[in-house]
Design a protein around this nucleic acid. Structure first.
Lengths: 209, 209
DNA sequence: AAAAAAAGGGATGACACCATCCCTTTTTTG
DNA sequence: CAAAAAAGGGATGGTGTCATCCCTTTTTTT
C-alpha cells in the first residue's frame, strides 16, 4: 500500500494536496500534518513513500531561509527512502536549487499548481529525477462554477470557456474525451446538457458560450 | 441567483474557497480570479453579493502593507454593495482592524480555516456584522485519508479518530448524525463499514480505532 | 448479574451521476 | 449550394453512494 504524508499548515491547502496525491495513486493512504511536530512523530513511527512539504510552518519564520531549510532537512533526514516534494507560496529558483541539493525531488510554486499538475510532477520525477514548477500566472479569464451542474457538466463548460479562438468545438470534445477517458459524443452531450441547464435558469453564460 | 467572486492566486486554494462558498449557498454562481486584473474586469461588468479576497496577489509585494490594503480597497470600491471577506496566510490582529475600517466584513487566517468554517463566518457576519478568525494551530494528531473509503465512511473515521478521551462512541455517532443530518444508526453503520474495509485490507488503523 | 456499549455483519430502496446511442433542426463554413 | 458544425433534445442501462432497518455476538460498565 502506497503511503504519503502532507505537511502543510493551511487546512484547505493541505486537504487539496491530499486530494492531489490520492488522485495520483490508485490505492493509497494519505496522512495530513499541520505542524512539524505531528509530522516528525509520524515519520518516526511509520514508513512513507512520499512526503509533501510546505516549509512555511507555524513556529518558524517564513522569511528566514534558515528556518525553511531546517524544516525540509529535518523531514528528509527522518524519511531518507521517501520521495520529497516541496510546495511553497513564495517560490524562487534559488531556493529550488537549495532544496534540490539536500535531496528534494520536486519544487512547486503554489500559484499555477492546479488539479492534475501533481501527477505530471510525479511523472517528471520518475523520468528526469527532478521536477521544477515555479509560480506563474496563467489565467486570462475567470473560472466559473455553477452549483446546478454536475462535475462532468462543470468540466465541459470549463474547457469550452477556455477554448482558444479559432479552435472548433469538436476539437474540444475530442480533448475532453481524451482527458476523461470517455467518448467524444458523451463529452458533447455533457456540454449541451450543461448549457441547456444554464440557459433554462437564465444564467449569463461565460464568454465563448 | 447568489453571485460570488473569489480572488486568490493559488489555484488549489482558490478552488477550495470556491467550494466553501458553494457549500454555504444552495444555488449560486462562483467565479474565481487569479489576478486583480481579472477581478476588476469582472467587478466592472457584473454584480456580486460576496467577494473573497487574498491580498497577496501576483504583481504586489506581499510584505508591503500598502500594497495589501490597496488591493482590498480597490475591490471594495468596485463592489460597494457586496460582502467582503479577507483571507490571508500571514494574518495578524492589526491588519484585521485595518481591513475592517475600510469595509471588510470578515478577516480569516488560512491556518485553521477548515471545511465548514466559512458557513459559520457568514453566520457571524449576518448576526454580529464582523467575523475574525486568526490563524491558530488546532491539530494534535494527523488526518488520515484512505482511498478505499467513500466520503461518508471517511468522515466517520475522521470524527472517531478525533474523539476526545472518555467520550463514548455513541456520542460521536450522535454528533455525526447532527452534522450530516442523518440518523445516528446510519452514522454508526458508516463507521463500522469503514472500519471493516480498513481491517480487511490490513491497514494500520489511526489511534483510537 | 444485569445493562449498556461496542463489534460485526446482511439486505434494502432511492437517487444521482456516468456513459452511451439515438434523433431533428438550425447555423456556419467551404 | 453542399457539407460540416453546432444547437437542442429523448431514452437507456449501469453503478456507487446514501440512508435506513434489521440481526447476532462479544466486551465493557455499573
Amino acid at each position: 500500500m502506497f503511503r504519503a504524508l502532507v505537511v502543510e499548515d493551511q487546512t484547505l491547502m493541505r486537504l487539496a494536496l491530499m486530494n492531489e496525491v490520492q488522485a495520483s495513486f490508485e490505492k493509497c493512504v494519505v496522512l495530513g500534518a499541520e505542524t512539524l511536530t505531528i509530522a516528525t512523530a509520524e515519520l518516526q513511527n511509520n514508513h512513507f513513500d512520499l512526503v509533501v512539504i510546505d516549509p512555511g510552518l507555524p513556529g518558524f519564520d517564513p522569511t528566514s531561509q534558515g528556518d525553511r531549510v531546517a524544516v525540509v532537512d529535518k523531514i528528509i533526514e527522518a524519511s531518507p527512502s521517501a520521495i520529497h516534494i516541496v510546495v511553497t507560496g513564495s517560490d524562487n529558483r534559488c531556493e529550488a536549487d537549495g532544496f534540490r541539493q539536500i535531496g528534494a525531488a520536486a519544487y512547486l510554486g503554489k500559484t499555477g499548481l492546479a488539479p492534475g499538475v501533481f501527477s505530471d510532477v510525479l511523472d517528471d520525477i520518475s523520468t528526469k529525477g527532478f521536477a521544477l514548477r515555479l509560480s506563474r500566472v496563467v489565467m486570462t479569464k475567470p473560472d466559473y462554477r455553477f452549483s446546478v451542474l454536475t462535475p462532468r457538466e462543470q468540466e465541459a463548460i470549463d474547457m469550452m470557456a477556455h477554448r482558444a479562438p479559432g479552435v472548433k468545438r469538436k476539437e474540444i470534445f475530442s480533448l475532453m474525451a481524451d482527458r476523461l477517458a470517455i467518448d467524444a459524443n458523451s463529452a458533447e452531450k455533457y456540454y449541451k446538457q450543461a448549457r441547456a441547464k444554464l440557459m433554462r435558469q437564465g444564467h449569463p453564460l461565460p464568454h465563448g458560450l
